[in-house]
Amino acid sequence: MTIVQAIKKPNEPFVFNEKRILLKEPLVLVFGNRYMLESEHIYAEVKDLFPNSHIVFGTTSGEIIDDSVLEGTVVLTAIEFKKSSVVIKRSNINDFKNNDYKLGESLMAEFPKENLKHLFIISEGSSVNGSALINGLEKVKNTGISLSGGLCGDDGRFERTLASYNENPKEGEIIAIGFYGETLEITSSNYGGWTPFGPERIITKSEGNVLFELDGKPALDLYKTYLGEKANELPKSALLYPLSVRIEEDSEPLVRTILNIDNDKNTMILAGDVPEGSKVQLMMSSVDDIVSGAIHAAELAMKGRENNPELALLISCIGRKLVMDQRTEEEIEEVKSVIGNDTFISGFYSYGEMAPFSGQQECKLHNQTMTLTLFSE
Rank of each mutant, 00 (worst) to 15 (best):
V4P: 01
K8C: 04
N11W: 08
F14V: 03
F14P: 00
E18K: 03
P26T: 06
L29R: 04
R34K: 13
Y35G: 06
E38N: 15
H41I: 10
I42G: 05
Y43G: 07
F50K: 04
N52F: 10
I64W: 02
V74G: 05
V74N: 04
A78S: 10
R90C: 11
N92I: 08
N94K: 14
F96E: 00
F96S: 04
K102A: 07
L107I: 05
E110T: 14
E110K: 12
E114N: 15
H118R: 01
S123E: 11
S126A: 06
S131H: 11
E138L: 13
K139A: 15
N142E: 10
I145T: 15
G156F: 12
A163K: 00
N166G: 03
E167Y: 07
N168Q: 08
P169Q: 01
I174A: 00
G178V: 01
G181H: 07
T183D: 14
I186P: 07
I203Q: 01
G208M: 08
K217S: 06
P218M: 00
A219Q: 00
L220V: 09
L222P: 07
T225M: 11
L234Q: 05
L243K: 08
R246Q: 09
E248G: 14
E252Y: 08
P253T: 05
N260E: 14
N263M: 05
I269H: 06
A271M: 12
D273Q: 01
V274A: 08
G277N: 03
V280E: 09
Q281K: 15
M284H: 11
S286C: 12
V291P: 04
G293K: 03
H296R: 14
A298Q: 06
A301P: 03
M302E: 05
K303Y: 09
P309N: 07
L311D: 04
L314G: 08
I315D: 00
G319I: 07
M324S: 14
E333Q: 12
V335L: 11
G340P: 01
N341P: 02
I345Y: 02
A355H: 08
Q361E: 13
K364I: 05
L365C: 04
M370H: 13
L374P: 00
